[in-house]
């Protein structure tokens, strides 16, 4: 027995250690694999998080820029006209008798005009702020597009009459939308406001009808038109600031900013077609 042990001791020990070693290697291999897999999972998670944070950061940065823009609009387009409404009124009250009739009329019509512009601008700023809250609760409802167009035209009737611009409502009768009503209304409001602002004479036309998978709305004007660069600017995601200048009218860029935000809410798409000097047509597709 002891001989057997003596003879076989060495190989047995060697064999045992080989087995142990191989087992050890397999175990290590296994552990390493698990660690690698875990690491990969962690890395993926981390990347996902990083992307999320980056996206949120971008949104925050964009909001920041928009806020800066809004402050500038409020200071330039609201506060300073209001100051001069006040100054003009004061000086009219003080020396009404000495002011010739034509100047009086000029001033009054300007004050009225300013009041309307301020109303429209404030409405829009309010519209934009209202829909910035991501947790807002909204309910879809049914509404008639043609009626909505009439209602919005009503808001701008005074301005249109002054500029001798005609409104045409060519929406097919019976086009009923099931949508979040206010965002759609805000979009059309802004499209008509833009059309009105950049048109000197002619018509602003809204048309709409059913398409294959949704509803198409078109707002067309006979205005100055937009250059390709202006269109690209407007369509770009990073567009936050003033659209290039069209003669006397200075776009503050707020209109399209709001339009794009609202269209995102209702999952709609839009496109702009324009011939310089002959007008612009904006088409919106609302999927049903």
């Amino acid at each position: 027995m002891s001989e057997f042990l003596v003879v076989y001791k060495l190989p047995v020990v060697v064999l045992l250690s080989i087995i142990l070693f191989v087992g050890f290697c397999i175990a290590i291999n296994y552990i390493v694999k698990i660690v690698i897999i875990k690491q990969k999972i962690l890395k993926l998670l981390l990347e996902k998080r990083a992307r999320e944070i980056e996206r949120k950061n971008e949104a925050l940065e964009r909001n920041n820029l928009i806020q800066t823009r809004l402050i500038s609009i409020i200071s330039h387009d609201i506060i300073s006209p209001l100051r001069f409404v006040h100054i003009a009124c004061n000086s009219m009250v003080d020396d009404l008798d000495e002011i010739p009739k034509d100047l009086q009329k000029e001033m009054l019509s300007e004050i009225g005009h300013s009041a309307k512009e301020l109303e429209l601008l404030s409405t829009n700023i309010m519209n934009w702020i209202k829909y910035q809250n991501e947790n807002r609760r909204m309910i879809k409802e049914e509404f008639d597009l043609s009626q909505m167009a009439d209602q919005i035209f009503g808001v701008f009737q005074g301005l249109a009459r002054q500029k001798k611009i005609q409104f045409k409502n060519e929406v097919n009768t019976g086009v009923v939308l099931y949508q979040y009503m206010e965002p759609v209304k805000i979009v059309i409001y802004n499209l008509i406001l833009n059309a009105l602002n950049f048109t000197e004479k002619g018509c602003v036309t809204i048309s709409g009808g059913k398409a294959k998978k949704g509803i198409l709305i078109k707002v067309k004007d006979d205005g100055k038109g937009m250059t390709e660069q202006q269109i690209n600017n407007v369509m770009s995601d990073y567009f936050i600031v003033s659209s290039a200048n069209v003669d006397k009218r200075k776009g503050n860029g707020l209109g399209y900013l709001i339009i794009k935000d609202m269209l995102k809410l209702v999952n709609a798409k839009f496109s702009i077609k324009s011939i310089n000097g002959q007008g612009t047509m904006v088409t919106i597709f609302l999927p049903s």
Binding site: I87, A88, M92, E98, L103, M107, E110, H113, K248
Partner: peptide
């Protein structure tokens, strides 16, 4: 000035005052 209200207000001041 690019605001007509500002121009008109200023014009008013210049003419009346």
């Amino acid at each position: 000035d690019d605001h007509s209200m500002v121009r008109k207000g200023m014009k008013m001041l210049l003419r009346t005052q």
